[in-house]
């Protein structure tokens, strides 16, 4: 029981990170029908940006209030990663819009390779350890087989994720931007005819996706305490899997998919073996898709004939 509770806490924490990244995949897919393969590496880049800003604040400027530092790091990472993703869309994807479906996919794979190797070249290939922060833990239960703990980090991750998801949900449901986004999703040509600035909407989609990935990146850096240039691929693929599992194109689906993948992975590691946690996540994806071809929350696709 204690183990179950502890794994639940860990799984939700990991799932929050996956969910935040998955939103970027799902939004971009929804609006331009493209699998943005570079998104995982954008996430990795954001973790590096967060790390460097953190070091700059603590070492160069000598800030000591951890809360303030965390807030500034989060905001800087969000803004700078958003700029990166905006530029990436502008350079690598926009010229290919409306062309061949596979062209942007290959371009995105190229971008992903570029980003990982760029970070490797400019920051070096070694693991970058981060000084531990928010190390306090809360004892949830004690006296059982072992103590179940909930760390401040975990609380921070889950609450930051929750708050930002709510804000984001409000953004896409209630604002003009959200409406424009949904219009472009339905029919880009029509949306353009009706005066929606399609380019701007798509740019904003990439910006929002990157900002959420940056939140994930910041939390990841803080939670695991180490970042590496190759950290983009696996979380990226997992988050993409989460987006598909939840039903690609569906925002709540992305979050639920993320939590599910996080839970599957943690529970599998805890009860079976951590070697096969990826196999478990991917197998469940394949099985789900065979029986629910549009994912959990995706609209079932009736072919219009």
């Amino acid at each position: 029981m204690e183990n179950f509770l502890q794994q639940l806490i860990n799984g939700v924490t990991l799932g929050s990170i996956y969910g935040l990244i998955a939103i970027g995949y799902t939004m971009v897919f929804g609006i331009i029908g493209m699998v943005n393969f570079a998104h995982g590496d954008v996430f990795m880049l954001s973790a590096f940006i967060a790390l460097i800003v953190f070091l700059a604040l603590t070492q160069l400027l000598g800030l000591t209030s951890l809360g303030l530092v965390f807030l500034i790091v989060l905001i800087c990472a969000m803004a700078l990663t958003a700029l990166w993703n905006w530029a990436i869309e502008r350079v690598a994807y926009r010229p290919l819009r409306g062309s061949f479906r596979l062209a942007p996919l290959i371009s995105a794979i190229g971008m992903s390779i570029f980003l990982a190797n760029f970070v490797q070249v400019v920051q070096g290939p070694r693991n970058k350890p981060v000084p531990p922060m928010f190390t306090d833990v809360i004892q949830v239960t004690s006296g059982g087989a072992f103590d179940v703990t909930l760390s401040y980090k975990q609380i921070l991750i889950v609450s930051v994720t929750g708050i930002l998801l709510l804000a984001f949900w409000f953004l896409v449901q209630k604002t003009a931007l959200g409406r424009a986004q949904r219009a472009c999703e339905q029919d880009r040509t029509m949306a353009a005819l009706l005066g929606v600035d399609v380019d701007r909407t798509i740019s904003l989609t990439f910006i929002i996706g990157a900002a959420l990935a940056a939140v994930a990146g910041t939390l990841y850096m803080m939670y695991y305490g180490v970042v590496n240039f190759s950290d983009g691929f696996t979380p990226g693929v997992k988050a993409f899997t989460a987006a598909v599992l939840g039903g690609i194109g569906s925002l709540p689906g992305a979050v639920i998919g993320g939590l599910l993948i996080g839970l599957i992975e943690t529970f599998w590691s805890a009860y079976f073996s951590s070697d096969y946690k990826d196999v478990a996540a991917f197998s469940i994806l394949i099985v789900t898709l065979i029986f629910m071809p549009s994912g959990l929350l995706g609209r079932p696709e009736v072919e219009k004939v």
Binding site: V91, S99, A103, P104, I106, S107, G110, I113
Partner: peptide, 17 residues
């Protein structure tokens, strides 16, 4: 690999098909 990735992007933009 950095140039490899960049080449993929450039070649796609140059000849999407």
């Amino acid at each position: 690999m950095l140039l490899f990735g960049l080449a993929m992007v450039v070649m796609m933009i140059w000849r999407p098909r």
